[in-house]
């Protein structure tokens, strides 16, 4: 597949948000807020950055991706469908009995899914194991892992942050979708992360901070990896929860939900302008 450029990726992300809105509507609800804050990053990864082949999803020397914030499946699953891992029509089954996918992804059911996730704080240590194994086999494959901002409250994230730096995993790239909201409220009132860059830096990581809803900045960050030689990289992506749906943007109440007909029409009009 030809890698898409920034402009094409933005159009693709708008299309994917519309697909996700439709999927969530049919499913009766979904994790729209965190899925939409991460949609631009996921689109960039799957249509530009990752070395993958949907015709050979288990290719040994592929890049790996772990959706550690598994609830962002409402973005991830449409991305995989659009990338060609399975038929787009299957999205209509989201959350249904016997569907290959629901709220959190299952690696044994979803082609292209490298790890089952859903419980927070698991993806980074799993990714560290993958990165070690790939390095042992002298493969140049990289491991990308997307975490939510609230997710990094979990202690296992910091166990793995310490370990990945110790093992010098320059083939490991963590992304923090910093949309500033957790389920109970604004993250700064629940459990603040700042100074977030210093935290990761002090653990021995190369740190990059970007606007995670700006395609140029996303591509630029991923175009020169690792950020520091011999070290894992973390991309702190400042994002907006619910990005692309004006009526819910930045509102922590929209961790999970289903848009009203009016919100939907408004969102579709906004997203069409971006296509």
């Amino acid at each position: 597949m030809r890698k898409l450029g920034a402009q094409e990726l933005s159009v693709k992300a708008s299309k994917l948000r519309m697909m996700a809105i439709d999927m969530i509507d049919k499913a009766g609800g979904g994790h729209i807020g965190g899925s939409f804050s991460a949609m631009d990053i996921l689109t960039a990864l799957y249509f530009n950055v990752l070395d993958i082949d949907p015709r050979d999803p288990n290719k040994r020397d592929r890049d790996r991706f772990i959706l550690s914030a598994g609830h962002k499946a409402a973005a991830y699953v449409p991305v995989l469908a659009e990338r060609g891992y399975f038929a787009v029509e299957l999205l209509d089954t989201f959350n249904q009995l016997d569907s290959p996918f629901a709220m959190h992804p299952d690696m044994n059911k979803i082609p292209g899914c490298d790890m089952s996730t859903g419980s927070l704080g698991h993806g980074l240590p799993v990714a560290a194991g993958m990165a070690l194994a790939l390095r042992m086999d002298n493969l140049s494959s990289r491991v990308f892992v997307l975490m939510g901002d609230g997710e990094i409250h979990e202690g296992t994230v910091w166990e793995a942050a310490m370990g990945a730096a110790h093992f010098g995993l320059e083939n490991l790239i963590a992304i923090v979708d910093y949309n500033k909201c957790t389920m109970d409220g604004p993250i700064d009132s629940v459990m603040p992360l700042e100074p977030i860059e210093e935290k990761w830096r002090s653990f021995g990581w190369g740190v990059r901070r970007i606007d995670g809803n700006d395609m140029q900045q996303i591509l630029e960050a991923f175009s020169r990896l690792p950020e520091l030689d011999g070290r894992p990289t973390v991309v702190i992506a400042d994002t907006v929860k619910g990005k692309g749906v004006p009526s819910i943007e930045g509102d922590y109440h929209w961790h999970y939900g289903r848009l009203s007909d009016m919100q939907r029409r408004e969102a579709e009009a906004t997203l069409r302008r971006g296509m």
Binding site: R60, R64, M107, D114, M115, H122, P125, V126, A127, A128, G129, M130, A131, L132, A133, L134, D137, V143, G155, T156, E159, A160, M162, G163
Partner: peptide, 16 residues
């Protein structure tokens, strides 16, 4: 860091 170790083991296993 046993939790990290066990999760990492899963990662190793996915890579054969």
């Amino acid at each position: 860091a046993e939790q990290e170790m066990v999760a990492a083991a899963a990662g190793f296993a996915t890579c054969g």
